[in-house]
């Protein structure tokens, strides 16, 4: 859907040329949410802004649906790509409904159709249109403004949405809510999204893939789970942070851990869904253990999507994985087994 091929961007300045983006290649598939993350000055925002030509690459090629963006009219290109920025970037003199419907208006939709679409989208982002449509942005809270920003980006139903730290300016609790909303909306609308953030937790929560950048280069481009399991270099580890182990537990599922089942599940034995993360499974085991239901079992079965127990995880293996992962960030592996879920080892 979107492809960046050896893209560089140099900003003219005094002294030696500064490359904000340096030979970056990224491919984003249809319906994928790719997070660009990195410290300030890593080039993540510039990289994103080159996709809708708010910045012009000095080298390389960017294609959207196989067409070089340089060959497209920049105004038409941007109308076909949703765009969300920090604090929404709402037009203060437009009502909420007019803000949402601005791209449809530029595209020449009728007033009636615009109004209907604005109402539809306000409902989608959780702002009842009858209450919010005719307000002005300054009458909304920061979180509500962000929702309007997201609604505006989706108004003309663009296949691609670019989001530049959209939730960066709101308080952590509101941010959590907005992130969950975005996941729900994304499940519904299935857009191709490029999402810029410097919040690693946000990246793990939202990203199908995470592209970690530093000094204008891509350091690692991987799924959240792979990034945690196989950090490319110490920079990645450092950026991911000290609690990498715990996050790893969130991103490894029982399915990945299970070995082929030794036989049919014994009646009454414990069966857990393969989709559970190790962290959640630990909690689950803890609950069962507290009820004294493990008995003499050495492990538990893992069920596939159809509910059939096709895999097996011994308690020993489970605990070892826990210890290993937590131990990677925690110098004292001894604290791993009991601490994070009450696993009977």
């Amino acid at each position: 859907m979107i492809a960046l091929e050896h893209v560089s961007k140099a900003f003219p300045g005094r002294g030696p040329e500064v490359r904000a983006v340096d030979d970056v290649s990224i491919a984003v598939g249809a319906g994928e949410l790719v997070v660009l993350i990195g410290p300030s000055g890593s080039g993540k925002t510039t990289t994103m802004r080159m996709i809708n030509r708010l910045e012009t690459p000095t080298e390389g090629r960017i294609t959207v649906n196989g067409r070089d963006v340089r060959d497209l009219n920049e105004v038409d290109l941007r109308r076909g790509i949703g765009y969300v920025i920090q604090q929404g970037g709402l037009f203060p003199h437009f009502t909420v409904a007019d803000n949402v419907a601005v791209v449809p208006r530029l595209l020449g939709w009728s007033r009636q159709k615009r109004r209907a679409r604005a109402h539809e989208l306000l409902a989608l982002v959780g702002l009842p249109p009858e209450r919010f449509a005719d307000r002005y942005p300054r009458q909304l809270s920061g979180g509500q403004q962000q929702r309007v920003g997201v609604a505006r980006a989706l108004a003309a139903d663009p296949p691609i949405v670019l989001m530049d730290e959209p939730f960066g300016a709101v308080d952590p609790i509101t941010r959590k809510g907005l992130q969950k909303e975005l996941r729900r909306i994304q499940a519904e609308v299935q857009k191709t999204i490029v999402f810029v953030t410097h919040d690693i937790a946000e990246a793990f929560l939202l990203g199908d893939r995470i592209v970690l950048m530093a000094d204008g280069r891509v350091v690692q481009d991987a799924t959240p789970a792979d990034l945690l399991r196989n950090p490319a270099d110490p920079f990645v580890t450092a950026f991911i942070g000290e609690d990498r182990g715990l996050r790893g537990l969130q991103f490894t599922t029982l399915e990945e851990l299970a070995e082929p089942a030794p036989g049919a599940a014994t009646p009454g034995a414990m069966v857990l869904s393969g989709a559970l993360s190790i962290l959640d499974a630990g909690r689950e085991l803890g609950r069962h253990g507290a009820n004294g239901r493990h008995g003499t079992a050495n492990g538990f079965w893992v069920a596939d999507a159809g509910g059939n127990p096709t895999g097996y995880v011994s308690f020993q293996r489970f605990a070892a994985t826990l210890g290993e992962t937590v131990g990677a960030s925690d110098a004292d592996p001894g604290s791993a087994d009991g601490g994070h879920g009450g696993v009977p080892a």
């Binding site: 708010l54 105004v75 941007r78 076909g80 765009y83 920025i85 970037g89 037009f91 003199h93 791209v103």
Partner: peptide, 24 residues
């Protein structure tokens, strides 16, 4: 941010001026 948004949603120079800049 308002000007950036105006460019980002696909307003041309004249539209930015008439719809956003002069009113504000």
């Amino acid at each position: 941010a308002t000007l950036d948004a105006a460019r980002g949603v696909g307003m041309g120079g004249g539209q930015r001026l008439v719809m956003v800049e002069l009113p504000l």
